[in-house]
Design a protein around this nucleic acid. Structure first.
Lengths: 153, 153
DNA sequence: ATTGAAAGATGACCGCA
DNA sequence: TGCGGTCATCTTTCAAT
């Protein structure tokens, strides 16, 4: 993995804002030729620095969906319990984010569901009896003031 | 705002995975002609259903950055305090996500910084004396097991 | 849904450090 | 050798039918 120069950083910043810009537009912004921009994008994709390029949808336009934050404490029990939990979380499309955290809780989840009924159904599937969940706390989001994943590089 | 049919939903699902697919690729997946796909994408963008299209970067490839979750309690004091806080959070690139929440806390933030020193500097800027912050609790993420914003539609 | 014109991406080639 | 620039070609988009 080669090191990123200032052109790469400028390019990544621009692509985090909008990845549909033409190489010409990007080229003007960062001061390079369109072809050089393309070559760099290709490389950054291959290296995995650019993980994916995705559409961000407007939650408010898709029925009043709700976001909840769930803090989870697992019953004490080795890394295999933790790993099983991680694998489980990755499977559920409703679990947008899952952080393995230090401190009082073991995991913090950001979950998106259509309504409170779906929330209830989901938690039963996420945390079945046989899974070693000790306790979980739910925080309901009233408003997503800001929601992106861009890195402040 | 017109209602979404099953083609739109299929299209949105695909674009949440990868927004760089050609209209031909998308057309094959959802069973429509490339032109129809283009028209629908155009409309969904104009309507704002597709909010933006962005590159997701690999945190691990950009120096060992850290994610922290911060729970904030404001001092009691009308909507103008809440609004001022929201406006402030939107300004900071390090604040990836900010949820206004119900319950014990007023806000939950997901913050990304380069290291613990940057975290310290940031919190001083995020929560200056004059702002009505009563208390904040920080949770350090050991690992981002999953991090996306795609909606489970 | 098909078609044709315009725009953009991709690859080959040259030059420079 | 690695990287940037230009040019030619192929692909994709987009609007009109």
């Amino acid at each position: 993995m080669s090191v990123l120069d200032s052109f790469d950083v400028a390019l990544l910043r621009a692509l985090q804002e909008n990845c549909q810009q033409t190489s010409q537009q990007l080229a003007e912004q960062i001061g390079l030729s369109p072809t050089a921009v393309q070559r760099r994008i290709k490389k950054l994709r291959e290296q995995g620095v650019i993980q994916k390029e995705v559409a961000i949808l407007n939650t408010q336009m898709l029925g009043n969906r709700m976001t909840v934050i769930i803090q989870v404490i697992l019953e004490k029990g080795g890394p295999q319990v933790v790993d099983a939990f991680k694998r489980r979380m990755r499977k559920f499309r409703e679990v947008q984010q899952c952080y393995y955290v230090a401190g009082e809780y073991d995991f913090v989840l950001v979950v998106n569901v259509g309504n409170i009924t779906e929330y209830d159904i989901l938690t039963r599937k996420l945390f079945p009896e046989d899974l070693k969940i000790s306790k979980f706390y739910t925080i309901i989001a009233i408003e997503a003031v800001k929601a992106d994943l861009s890195l402040p590089i």
